[in-house]
Design a binder for these strands. Structure first.
Lengths: 138, 138
DNA sequence: AATCGGTTGTTATGTTGTATCATCTTGCCA
DNA sequence: TGGCAAGATGATACAACATAACAACCGATT
């Protein structure tokens, strides 16, 4: 969190109280959390919270690389490599609901080769693998 | 489409008129199409169509591997390798809206290695790359 | 004829995300 | 020191995406 504050200062963007609360809410869950769950949690300490309040904060945090959106769950997850440029992949366990962020160079290399072959300019990568994690498999 | 019919016969599942119409609607667009766009199109020839009608058909077609869902767009796309077991990745152009399905062995190999390392049992893969396609880049 | 599984009809509702315009705060500077 | 501009938030309404629940139908089997 100190790191998040430092990053925002460095970039001259504002990590306002609302944004910081939302970040804390997303961050403290190791499972992806839905926008309306964030809203419920935020509303406990911030009565005026409404959907746009939350979506604005989530958009800001995504733009700054502090959280990710898991598209296949419509949910949000704290980023493990906050602020550093990186691409990430997610392993999502359908049993326990956790999402693990992994960084895999081989993956990126294969992707780079495939997109270059297609002359495709990459802007955003969504890689979400669902299944059963090691712990839940026993 | 003949191929879709053959597959369903072989599997002893019913490609009913509604399902076939929905498949045709998804298939004839080379862009991913939203469920409510499908609904509008279906309703032209099938007045009774309602959201559940469409979602049931889409679920069936996905289960049979005839279409895919693009999670990052909440939209559906005809499958290029209908019925054959395969994993696919998508290149989605934000300019023209087309989504190209690519099959890349290197990708699958990298994924296999990464998931085995994590002792993760894969059930579903979502790989959606957004950006600018070759045609739109000029 | 009874019934059983699969499909569709129907109504309502739940979930996720945005548009729009008003208001407030802060810093700047003429 | 008054006014303006940019960024952030408040507030209302609505759009877009998806499912729950139960009724009705239909063909195949017994």
């Amino acid at each position: 969190m100190a790191r998040a504050r430092a990053l925002c200062t460095e970039r001259a963007v504002q990590l306002t109280p609302i944004r910081e609360k939302v970040l804390a809410i997303v961050w403290r869950s190791h499972k992806p959390v839905g926008a309306y769950d964030v809203l419920d949690a935020l509303a406990r300490t911030h009565k005026a919270a409404r959907p746009p309040t939350v979506y604005r904060a989530l958009d800001f945090l995504m733009a700054e690389g502090l959280i990710h959106k898991i598209e296949s769950l419509n949910a949000y997850l704290g980023c493990g490599e906050a602020g550093r440029p990186h691409t990430s992949q997610f392993l999502i366990c359908r049993e326990c609901g956790t999402a693990q962020e992994i960084v895999d160079g081989g993956f990126d290399k294969a992707l780079e080769a495939a997109t270059r072959r297609a002359r495709f300019t990459v802007e955003r990568k969504v890689v979400e693998i669902s299944g059963i994690c090691a712990r839940c498999a026993h």
